[in-house]
Design a protein around this nucleic acid. Sequence first.
DNA 1: ATATAATTGCAAGTTTATAGCAACATGAGA
DNA 2: TCTCATGTTGCTATAAACTTGCAATTATAT
Lengths: 150, 150
Amino acid sequence: MYIIFTMVKEVEVRIENFLNTCKQLGLKITPQRQAVYEALLNREDHPTVEEIYADVKKKYPFISLATVYRTVETLEELGLVKKVAYWGSSARYDANIYEHHHLICLKCGAIRDLEMETGWYMPEEIEGYKTISFSIHIYGVCPLCRKKGF
Amino acid sequence: MYIIFTMVKEVEVRIENFLNTCKQLGLKITPQRQAVYEALLNREDHPTVEEIYADVKKKYPFISLATVYRTVETLEELGLVKKVAYWGSSARYDANIYEHHHLICLKCGAIRDLEMETGWYMPEEIEGYKTISFSIHIYGVCPLCRKKGF
DNA sequence: ATATAATTGCAAGTTTATAGCAACATGAGA
DNA sequence: TCTCATGTTGCTATAAACTTGCAATTATAT
């Protein structure tokens, strides 16, 4: 019924797309840049910049945190990732740019993608707004935090 | 069909409720605390802490920013306001705690509350998450920005 | 009125994010 | 393949957002 979004088959396609986009816009393909994007592709949650930094460091121990900040910003401008703002905590990023929904833990801040049918169809116009897309944010407590007694 | 949420008649009721909640929990009703809550009630947008601070200062010029930070946090714990962060880096607060949705302009960042029926009922549990509430975020272009040609 | 316990304001401290700049690496063209 | 222009990195300093410690103050129960 509810299917967690998986991006299995798409990783190579997306990296290809990333490389092309960079070339077209005259952006250099540096190991750091690619590593940051791959780190995001390889996670199904929505890591903070610090978390991405930790992931990338495993491969490139000398990368700078500032570079990660700059890179995710660049990727966002390219439309390759989305910044997922969320109550309170620090900014999180998502390499899934297709329309999808979010499961957000109120205790630890973790965010998961969620693909589901709602049966709700978005009108083309609401209150004078021309609508483009929508996303359902579901707030709750994640399994891990439930185990911890929340 | 789609009705923008107004909190006209409710202000007094909510302040009453706020006073009662404080009393029940042994929280003191200080002028600062009440002023912060009123400031939030008197706005239909979603102000940052700095913005609330500016509003309250008009009435209590000597209030401290730290107090506003602490007060909104307390109000959130009481369930009287919600923390909602979207684009910017800083947290925003909302005194409309009833389940409602958001119309977000991708051009200017304006956010409006929206009350509407979706016909979608949230299950009590999704993917192991115990669900608490949900909010639909509708992204689009607001009437003003449309007029400007977007 | 008084006592007591919560709350405030100030200032210092954290955390999160950005900017300046010299050193460096990528990729287009020789 | 080599060279060079320009984009990019990493370091560090700085800014912005938020939190905490503590003494002074104030609300409220008695």
